[in-house]
Simulated scan of single mutants.
Amino acid sequence: MAVFLLVTFFAAVAVAGYVVDFTFGSLGLIPDQPDATIPEEGITWNYTTWLNIVVLPLAVSLLARFWRTGGAAVLRMTGGSPEPAEHGHGHAPTRHGHSH
């Protein structure tokens, strides 16, 4: 089954690549090699850098709170199947939440 998925995904990616290449080529959206330029500015400090610096402590604090409050235990519990219901013990609850 894993080999089938691998071959299927590889074929889908290859076909999608050819479709994009032929589509962009037929529309003239692929630049010629002499016109293609590579930016040489390297790493710059811009607004996204500062936003990343601001958001990083927030993300760390949220992760710390998640681990301190037992989030990992909750995640472990959500993966299993539900416990079987007990049948035959007493009566089913009525509409108001108590049994007779």
Rank of each mutant, 00 (worst) to 15 (best):
Gly79Arg: 08
Ser26Gln: 13
Phe66Thr: 15
Gln33Arg: 12
Glu40Asn: 14
Thr49Tyr: 01
Ser81Ala: 09
Ser81Trp: 11
Phe4Glu: 15
His100Arg: 05
Gly42Tyr: 07
His100Asp: 12
Trp67Pro: 11
Leu5Asp: 12
Gly97Ile: 07
Leu51Gly: 02
Gly42Met: 04
Val3Leu: 15
Ala11His: 02
Pro34Ile: 15
His87Thr: 08
Leu56Thr: 09
Glu41Lys: 09
Gly70Lys: 11
Leu62Lys: 10
Arg65Ile: 15
Ala92Asn: 04
Val15His: 03
His87Leu: 06
Pro84Asn: 12
Glu40Ile: 13
Asp32Cys: 09
Phe4Ser: 15
Thr78Arg: 08
Leu56Tyr: 05
Ala72His: 01
Asp35Val: 05
Arg76Leu: 08
Gly42Trp: 00
Phe22Lys: 03
Thr94Gly: 09
Ala12Cys: 13
Ala11Glu: 12
Thr23Ala: 05
Ile43Asn: 04
Ile53Trp: 00
Ser61Gln: 05
Ser61Gly: 14
Leu63Met: 14
Ala73Gln: 10
Pro31Gly: 05
Pro93Val: 13
Val74Leu: 09
Gly28Pro: 08
Phe24Gly: 03
Met1Arg: 13
Glu40Lys: 15
Pro57Ala: 03
Phe22Trp: 07
Phe24Leu: 15
His98Tyr: 10
Ile30Trp: 04
Gly17Tyr: 07
Phe9Pro: 00
Leu5Ile: 14
Ala73Met: 03
Ser61Thr: 10
Glu83Met: 09
Met1Leu: 14
Ala64Thr: 15
Ala72Arg: 05
His98Met: 01
Arg95Met: 11
Arg95Tyr: 07
Ile38Phe: 13
Ala72Asn: 11
Gly42Asp: 00
Gly25Ser: 14
Pro57Lys: 12
Phe66Cys: 10
Gly25Gln: 07
Ala14Pro: 04
Leu51Met: 11
Arg68Thr: 14
Leu27Lys: 15
Pro57Arg: 15
Ala2Thr: 14
Leu58Cys: 10
Thr44Trp: 00
His96Asp: 13
Glu40Ala: 14
Ile53Ser: 02
Pro82Asn: 07
Leu27Gly: 09
Tyr47Asp: 05
Arg68Cys: 14
Pro39Trp: 01
Glu83Gly: 04
Gly17Asn: 02
Thr69Ala: 06
Leu58Glu: 04
Val55Asp: 00
Glu41Ser: 13
Leu56Ala: 15
Thr8Val: 13
Pro82Ser: 08
His98Trp: 08
Asn46Arg: 07
Ala64Pro: 01
Phe24Asp: 06
Ala14Asn: 03
Val74Asn: 08
Thr23Arg: 08
Phe4Lys: 13
